[in-house]
Each structure stands twice: as C-alpha cells, then as structure tokens.
Computed example of a mutant assay.
Amino acid sequence: MARLPRLTVPGYPHHVIQRGNNRQPIVLSDADRETLLGLVADNALKHRVALHAYVLMDNHFHLLLTPETEDGVPQMMQAVGRRYVRYFNDLHHRSGTLWEGRYKSTLIQSESYLLACMTYMDLNPVRAGMVAQASDFVWSSHRHYSGLAQDRRLTPHTLYWGLGNTPFAREAAYAEMVRDGLSVQQQTRITGAALRGWALGDAGFVAELQKRTQRRVTESRPGRPVSQRKSAESL
C-alpha cells in the first residue's frame, strides 16, 4: 500500500518523533545534545515554527511544534536532519545514515491533548528508567515549565499560560500535572497516533481538520480509539 504523505496543517500543534537507525544512539555527549537542540531551535525560528516542548533521549527525540506554514515542519526537520548527520558523522568518524527513515508526525487537538502530550514527553525518561522523576532530566522542556530553569528556545502555548495567573502558579500547576501522570488510555492514544500519523482528537476536531486537507486524517470513523502497535517505553 502506498505510504500516505505526512499530515501537516498550519496553526495546529504537531507531535514529531525522530529515531535513530536500528535504535542506535543519536547523541554521545552533552556537546552532541546541545548541537542538536541548537539546530532544532535555529531552524524552528528560520522556518516559522513555534517550538513548544521537547525531550531528547539517547536514541530518539520528541518535539511539539506549531508551524505557521504548510512547509514549515518538513523544511525544519529536513534541515535539522541533514546538518546534524553531517556534524555527527564528522565528529565521531562514521558514515552512512543516522535516522530510522522519515520522522513520524501526528497532529493533535490542543484542548484535549496538548498538555497531555507535553506530560507524555516529560515522562519519557521516567518510563525508560533513566531518572526517578521528570524534574531530574535536564534534556527536556520540563524544567522550564516547572520553574527550575529558563529555556529561551521555547514558545509556550496559550494553554500553558492558562494554567495560572502568575508564573509561580503556572509552574506549580504544570509540575503537579506531570506528577499526576497520564491514564493508560491517554498514553495509548498518544503513542498510537504518533506511530501511525493519524490526527489525535475528538470527532468534531477530526471533521473540521479534514475540511482543511485532502490527506485522510484518520484510519477510521472519528472518535474510535487508536490501537497501540508498540509500548510507550519504546518511545
């Protein structure tokens, strides 16, 4: 069956995942991590894409992005992918591919899933057994939103601003939300949508989104749960 083009629509949040080939490491040092995040931030700005959240694991990374244009995310990810592979191969004396094919991307409904997706990303290192709690991991946006660090690379979504009337209130509310975690159903839906590229939202959201693109946005009738192909721990 022919592979569907990625679903990308301006003005909507996109959950993006890029994994290393054969799950091999994509970073070997903090310098690699800083370089990769710098490329992400620079190309997000260049291609008019808001970077809301990120988590950088050893063999893959997640981004939460809102593009201003239809080509913003594809152009950004292409530039990041090419420049980082060149940097990584030259520095570590290797050749060949680094990525596991194309990046994966899903479009999400802000009101229902944006903060849940941020929580999902923050908890990735916890699920992987790398840290005991999200605040212990420095290579994600969690510490920025919970008030433990400042990260100028980020553009907070309006839903984050709605968590409280003061910075302290927003940071406390966000940290508590992450500590509370996700339900099994939320985690399953976010994982399945990310892996398969279908829009994540309720029936009304899916119907409205379908009016804006010729690309099919869901594999089934709106509202039907998305099956999970791989466990969340693998992401």
Rank of each mutant, 00 (worst) to 15 (best):
Q109V: 03
L63K: 09
H144I: 08
W99N: 10
D136Q: 14
D151N: 14
L154F: 06
E111A: 15
P74K: 09
L159I: 12
L64P: 10
D122M: 01
S95F: 08
T155A: 11
Y84P: 01
P125C: 03
P67T: 10
Y113G: 03
G162Q: 12
T158W: 06
S105D: 04
D180L: 11
Q150N: 12
P67M: 15
M177W: 03
G101R: 07
R82S: 15
S112Y: 01
N89Y: 06
T158V: 14
M76S: 09
R153F: 03
N89Q: 12
R179T: 10
R153Y: 01
R170C: 03
F61A: 06
G164I: 01
T97I: 11
V126D: 02
Y120E: 06
T158G: 03
W99G: 11
A53E: 02
T155M: 12
A53D: 15
E176Q: 11
H93P: 02
Y84M: 11
H92G: 07
R170W: 08
A79E: 14
R83P: 02
M118C: 14
E68T: 04
E111D: 14
R102W: 02
L114P: 07
D180H: 07
G181H: 05
L154E: 00
D90W: 07
I108L: 15
T119R: 00
L56R: 02
P167K: 05
Q150R: 12
Y174H: 11
V184T: 14
G96P: 08
P125E: 01
A173N: 13
L182R: 01
Y113E: 05
H60P: 10
L115Q: 07
L64Y: 10
Y145W: 00
L159V: 10
S141C: 05
G101W: 09
V138I: 11
L107K: 05
G181S: 12
N89F: 06
G81W: 07
Q75I: 01
P167L: 04
E111Y: 05
S110G: 04
L64V: 07
P67I: 08
P74C: 11
T158P: 00
L154Q: 08
G164P: 09
M130W: 12
L123H: 02
T166W: 05
V184H: 13
A173Q: 12
S183I: 09
A128K: 14
V55N: 03
E171W: 02
Q133E: 12
L65I: 10
G96V: 08
V73H: 08
A53L: 03
P167Y: 06
W161Q: 13
T66R: 13
Y103D: 01
S95T: 15
Q185W: 14
E70D: 13
N89V: 13
T69R: 14
A175P: 00
Y174A: 04
P167G: 07
A128H: 10
L65H: 07
R94F: 08
D180F: 01
L115S: 08
